[in-house]
């Protein structure tokens, strides 16, 4: 047996069996150089165990918690904005669908009267009240342009959010 780096590291990590330990003890009894190596290696191990933990600045916890609170606030604001955009979409879609139904509903109700005709009538009348506004061509154009703009910006927002999320996941 030779006192190699591997043997010394195994000794420190308690990976030597009884036979190997006995052999090592026998070896260092007569070999000064080997004894020095074992002593030095054990010394390194015992000193490394005494490495001090460096204390983080005292206000670290409060600073981090403050940053977390701020980030939560920003998140809430962003969520609010996102909800606003989604609500606008939903409102516009309902408005357009309602308008289309009100046009087609008139034909449907008049041709096939049924027990639901009263409910459908109310529904149609409700949306028909918007017809005055929607009959105006300018309002229709503005509404259409706004819808397209919202759809495009919504798409980019979604894509940006998705790529950021992917980046974050890759980074972590």
């Amino acid at each position: 047996m030779k006192v190699t780096d591997e043997i010394l590291n195994k000794l420190i990590d308690n990976e030597l069996n009884d036979r190997e330990i006995k052999e090592l003890h026998r070896l260092i009894k007569y070999d000064e150089v080997a004894l020095s190596k074992v002593k030095a290696h054990q010394m390194v191990n015992s000193i490394l165990k005494r490495i001090n933990v460096e204390l983080a600045p005292e206000d670290t916890t409060s600073k981090i918690m403050e940053r977390i609170s701020n980030s939560l606030l920003i998140k809430e604001r962003k969520n609010g904005f996102f909800k606003f955009i989604i609500s606008s979409f939903a409102f516009m879609i309902i408005f357009i669908v309602g308008y289309l139904i009100s046009i087609s509903g008139k034909i449907y109700v008049s041709e096939t009267p049924s027990k639901y005709s009263e409910i459908i009538d109310k529904f149609v009348n409700f949306f028909a009240s918007f017809n005055i506004a929607l009959d105006n061509e300018l309002i229709l154009i503005i509404g259409g342009v706004l819808t397209v703009m919202l759809l495009i910006s919504g798409y980019f927002m979604f894509e940006e959010h998705r790529s950021f999320k992917n980046k974050l996941e890759n980074y972590l």
Binding site: L8, S36, K37, A40, M43, L48
Partner: peptide, 14 residues
């Protein structure tokens, strides 16, 4: 560990 050990031996700290 090995490198640190050699430095310890170099300065005869063992």
């Amino acid at each position: 560990r090995n490198e640190l050990r050699e430095l310890i031996i170099k300065h005869n700290y063992q």
